[in-house]
Amino acid sequence: MADEPDYSSRVALPPRTRVAVGGARDVTEALFTSGDRKKKIQGTIFLGLLLFGLSIALIAIAAMIIWAFVAGGPRLNVNLLTNVPSIVTPENAGYRTAILGTLYVIGGVILLIVPLGVGAAVYLEQFANPANKFNRFVDLNIQNLAGVPSIVFGILGLAFIVRGPLSLGFVAAAGSLTLALLVLPTVILASREAIRAVPSSIRDGSLALGATVWQAVWRQVLPAALPGILTGVILAVSRAIGEAAPLLLVGAVTFVTFNPSFFEGGYSTLPTMIYSYAKRPQEELQVLAAAGVVVMLLLLIMINSVAIYLRNRFERTW
């Protein structure tokens, strides 16, 4: 134990923290230097643990996807996309209304979160004085909101959007608003990060040419931050597409056999439709639910591809 690293020079830490801090440093150092054998072995073991953890996650995802394709296999055909839902004739039932419902809800979410989220981020990053108490309060609460469980937003949507002040009823617009509130903090935080990553010299350069702060932001900073902002929107929308819990509370459980509209009548979305099939006992409906998972994955991949294409088009390097 002669080569025990010396931690005594550090501020007195509780033993547990000291071990953790020292261990973390040793492992990191071991990976970058060709230190002594003991540290090398420790580093290798730790790396192995990390890869093991990673592989568990990957295996779980792969298992789900394979299960969805195998279990839903018998129903993977065009009818699945074009036919309306039914529990009476499950062999012909499809997801048309749920796909449309999801597209409506997500379309509404995108329309709401992009201007609101980017606007809030621009204000907080470029205009707000960070020393101001109000701005710090807003800042803190956005971070808190990002950690609120999604079901809480469902209750909020039920109380204030479906009923209460807005009283929209159980319609797709209510679902959109609820999901928009849910993902708005994510979009704001990601957009702020993207805006902050634009060098301040770009902003100063435009101001020195006689641009107003607004012109500098609109013509230089925002275009440069666009790829990052789009990434944030992609992540937020991906989360919104898969959400079922808050939508259950704001009306997406309706079993609709007609095309939904935005402000009238019931609606359902893919996750809630899959849920309502999966909880029923019939074998055919289980198959249908699995096929629905495949549909949802495809929809997710499609929407993300468009977003990634857009992001790459605007991408630039500093």
């Binding site: 060098p199 010299s201 770009i202 100063d204 350069g205 435009s206 101001l207 020195a208 040419l209 006689g210 230089q220």
Partner: peptide
């Protein structure tokens, strides 16, 4: 700032 221009320490083209 339109009458008094500025060039910065590090080149900062857009």
């Amino acid at each position: 700032r339109t009458v008094i221009g500025m060039v910065f320490q590090k080149p900062n083209p857009f």
